[in-house]
Amino acid sequence: MALTREEREQFLAEPHIAALSVDAGGGRAPLTVPIWYQYAPGGDVWIMTGLDSRKNRLIGAAGRFSLMVDRVTPTIRYVSVEGPVLGTEPATVELLREMAARYLPAGKVDGYVDFAWKSHGEQVIVRMRPERWVSSDLGSV
């Protein structure tokens, strides 16, 4: 059964690990990789990735990407969202902290942020407007 707009937006707002897919061009299958993301109901999605990463280059070339999140308990549920890139901007330590706090226990955030800010190289924020949604709750099949 498809989710309502409110159900799918709330599900996407939960801190799932997403599968990001973007056209890889040149007769290749789409690049699909796990990624952290941020979303609030009714808003835009954003991800953080390396400025020089393959993901960032492919997203820039394609101008759009998809995210898919799922869970298997207590029911099998998923949401997939696709849309155009609204823009990119340099990452900030504040946005890195926001993202880390979404996924990590509070006691681990500062250590991770310090490590990531010093070690991951230049990062960018890529914002996407959800345009197409696919969702379902298959119950407890």
Rank of each mutant, 00 (worst) to 15 (best):
R8P: 03
Y39G: 02
M1V: 14
R64H: 13
L12K: 02
V33F: 04
E82H: 03
E89V: 05
E94D: 14
D52Y: 12
V113Q: 06
E6F: 07
R8Y: 15
Q38G: 10
A101I: 05
T88D: 05
P41W: 05
S53C: 08
A18Q: 04
T88G: 09
A100W: 12
E7S: 09
G50T: 07
R71V: 12
A62G: 12
V69I: 09
S140Y: 15
V109H: 07
L104C: 10
Q38V: 11
R64I: 03
P105L: 09
I125E: 04
Q123S: 03
K118N: 14
R77H: 06
K55M: 09
G60M: 01
S135P: 04
I76P: 08
K108S: 13
G50P: 14
E7A: 13
L12N: 04
W46D: 03
S140I: 13
L104W: 12
D70R: 01
R28E: 15
A100P: 10
G63W: 07
T73A: 14
M48N: 02
T49F: 02
S119P: 11
E9T: 01
S140C: 13
Y112C: 02
A106G: 12
G87L: 08
F115G: 01
S136E: 13
P105N: 08
T4F: 13
G111W: 11
H120Y: 14
G50N: 06
L51C: 06
D70E: 15
Y112K: 00
D114Q: 12
A29P: 14
V134A: 07
W117D: 00
Q10F: 14
L67K: 03
G26S: 10
D137Y: 08
V93D: 03
W36K: 02
V93T: 11
R129A: 15
K118Q: 14
A19L: 10
E7G: 11
V109S: 07
V33E: 06
V124A: 01
G60I: 00
L12H: 05
E89S: 11
A106E: 15
V72H: 12
A29K: 09
R28N: 15
R8Q: 15
V33W: 13
A18H: 12
D70Q: 12
F11G: 00
L86D: 07
A29T: 13
M48F: 10
H120A: 03
R71M: 09
A13Q: 05
M68R: 07
V134T: 11
A24Q: 05
R8W: 15
R132C: 03
V69N: 01
Y39A: 03
F115R: 05
R54I: 11
G60W: 00
Q10G: 12
N56M: 03
N56E: 06
R102G: 10
P130S: 11
L96C: 12
E122S: 06
Q123R: 15
L67N: 01
E122V: 00
L86H: 06
I59Y: 09
I47P: 09
H16Q: 01
R64E: 14
A19M: 11
R8L: 14
W133E: 00
V69C: 02
A40H: 08
D52K: 10
L58R: 01
A62Q: 11
A2C: 03
V109K: 05
R97P: 02
A106C: 11
P30N: 02
R129P: 13
V134P: 01
G121K: 06
